[in-house]
């Protein structure tokens, strides 16, 4: 395996008394597609949120693309990262949220061009061209002038994916991108994510309860339990012959909820 693009080293995250990430060790290779599964509260979202710098960590080191995320080297040791460092690191990642979090006061087009223009400094023409290509990719070219409130949940989530891609991240983070959608809208979003998964360069980290989908697109499945990775491996292995009792129970509960 190459040098990992994401590496968690004994990362601890606490909310008050509650330890959410418990000395977590976790690596992702460049271009790898990893799906995180696990019971509610096991820390799946927290992993993504730590990477996106939405949550600070209490101990350990996270490396992204060879550099510490939450720290900067300083006279041979690591000191807490400055905002400038965090901004540089954030540039490598994009995130898609469960509830889309589009900017409701902007048209679809402006949702896609705002950050490229004012964060990356693209010209209006460049930003617009990039946005139009991405809208085409997610199949929403005709919605450029619509406001988010005029779109269905599935359409909004596709816009959100395009918005994240417009920043050209190396790593895409998806936190339950279809959990808030009506069942009939899940497919259109999964199709977009799958087309992204076919890109070799892009590293993807996905939290989902769509097990069939995870099996088809993932290089690796990580089963989280109580802030640690209890078991991980290729999809066939995890889904067909999980080693751990907890994994079996979880998969059974997810795949056969009626029992």
């Amino acid at each position: 395996m190459n040098e990992p693009i994401i590496r968690f080293e004994k990362v601890v995250k606490r909310f008050g008394e509650l330890t959410v990430l418990d000395e977590l060790d976790f690596e992702v290779a460049p271009g790898e597609k990893v799906t995180i599964i696990g019971p509610s509260g096991s820390g799946k979202s927290t992993v993504l949120r730590v990477l996106m710098t939405l949550e600070r960590i209490n101990a350990g080191v996270v490396y992204v693309d060879g550099e510490p995320l939450w720290h900067e080297p300083h006279q041979g040791t690591l000191k807490p990262a400055s905002e400038a460092h965090l901004r540089k690191m954030r540039q490598k990642m994009g995130m898609v949220f469960q509830h889309f979090n589009l900017f409701p006061h902007m048209t679809v087009l402006r949702n896609l061009t705002e950050a490229p223009r004012y964060v990356l400094g693209l010209s209006p023409q460049e930003a617009r061209q990039r946005a139009e290509e991405l809208l085409e990719l997610v199949g929403l070219s005709d919605k450029a002038e619509a406001f988010p409130s005029q779109l269905s949940g599935g359409q909004q989530q596709r816009v959100a994916i395009a918005r994240a891609l417009a920043m050209r991240p190396k790593i895409m983070l998806f936190d339950e991108p279809t959990s808030a959608l009506d069942p009939e809208l899940v497919g259109e979003v999964l199709r977009v994510i799958r087309s992204l998964a076919e890109e070799h360069e892009l590293t993807m980290l996905l939290v989902t309860h769509e097990m069939d989908f995870a099996r088809r697109i993932s290089d690796r499945i990580c089963f989280f339990d109580q802030g640690r990775i209890l078991e991980q491996g290729p999809p066939e292995e995890i889904f067909s012959s999980p080693k751990e009792q907890r994994t079996r129970e979880f998969l059974h509960a997810v795949l056969h909820p009626e029992e």
Binding site: L54, R90, Q91, M95, F103, E114, Y118, V119, A164
Partner: peptide, 25 residues
């Protein structure tokens, strides 16, 4: 809060977030 998080994920500065995302809403 989720709007501020979306803005952060897109790497807007704090000032940009206030004036471009929060204030208009």
């Amino acid at each position: 809060r989720t709007q501020y998080e979306a803005a952060k994920a897109l790497n807007f500065t704090r000032t940009q977030t206030l004036w471009r995302i929060a204030l208009p809403q």
